[in-house]
Design a protein around this nucleic acid. Structure first.
Lengths: 187, 187
DNA sequence: TCGAATTCGGACTCTGTGTTCCGTTTGAAC
DNA sequence: GTTCAAACGGAACACAGAGTCCGAATTCGA
């Protein structure tokens, strides 16, 4: 995945991984309020090093969000032979579950800081278009309510309050969301 | 509603109202990112004046949130003879609708800045307990799903993404939320 | 009308946080 | 082992935004 033009020196590569790992932890815990200093500290590295790998906080956020979105895109594509509704349900459940380990994730769909990066915009578009297709199939099958749109699904799944919710809360939330998205006849 | 101990001078009272009005506008537009300077400017007043009326940004946020929460509390209490589910549905719809005019509102349930103020904590507790009772009745009537809890309702209604959504988005969101909260038998 | 208490305004201070800079250290090619 | 480009660390800088301060202006009772 590391598509850097020039090959990194051994220590630099090691530090880059440590930084990404540290950033994951920090953003999961503190959300958007995460400070660059604490990321560097968690990686056992000076801020200078952090800024050499990610020139801007935005770059770091972008890298993390891209990672997550890519996982979701894959998830939507898995097992194309399944009934659309089943897959949609799995995707929704996983997106909701993922919020519990990442306080910053809820911002991903609307986040403007990272939105300007073409690479990120592409990923977001990819997720949207694939979800769109999946939803269309689920509606055609008569499983999802006909007015359902991508944004409705994303709005429901990327809810900031989910990060603070407990296991029961997230389960119930997912159940409500899925039942609500269901077509009247299919229930 | 202005329960200040000493009576305010005419200009002071006028400014206080202007400040609250300006704050409503600014927070509705910019959410938590609203700056004190811009509130003062919008009220046509210096920052000094703003800080005399609201010594801290937290105080201002508190005043605004309290206003909103109080409205919701009233709403839950209205027309007690109605069937519980009907009222719950009305409350949910209104809470979701209210997000469209206030970018900061979504934080109200979890907001820690204002949570320390006893007055605010009371309001929040009041809303919770009244909603709790309403939900219990709706469950007892067989209208709401039995696992439903106050937090589930609040998490669904106070969703940050709703502020950016359009009319259709909010309507669909409300429909999904309500259908999802419904008991299986009642559908 | 006058005077004192109150309020106003906005330049200024203070703090927290993203970002830069540069002397030092390290990896790896020969 | 020597050399040098690349990478490191963290003190220092820059800037935004919350909150302060005090001389000027305003209100209002007498």
């Amino acid at each position: 995945m590391t598509t850097t033009t020039r090959v990194l020196r051994a220590d630099a590569a090691r530090n880059r991984q440590a930084l990404l790992e540290a950033a994951r932890t920090c953003f999961a815990r503190d959300g958007a309020a995460t400070q660059m200093d604490s990321v560097a500290a968690a990686a056992g590295v000076g801020v200078g090093t952090l800024y050499r790998h990610f020139p801007t906080k935005t770059d770091l956020v972008h890298a993390l969000f891209a990672e997550r979105l890519a996982r979701f895109v894959e998830l939507v594509e898995e097992a194309p032979e399944t009934r659309a509704w089943e897959r949609l349900a799995a995707v929704v459940a996983e997106m909701i579950r993922a919020q519990s380990c990442d306080r910053a994730l809820a911002d991903a769909p609307t986040c403007e800081v990272a939105a300007t990066r073409p690479e990120f915009a592409e990923l977001r578009a990819a997720l949207r278009s694939r979800l769109e297709a999946l939803i269309a199939r689920a509606i055609a099958d008569g499983d999802a309510r006909p007015e359902l749109r991508v944004d409705d699904v994303l709005n429901l799944c990327f809810n900031r309050h989910l990060a603070g919710a407990d296991e029961r809360g997230r389960r119930t939330y997912a159940a409500i969301a899925l039942d609500g998205m269901r077509a009247r006849d299919a229930r």
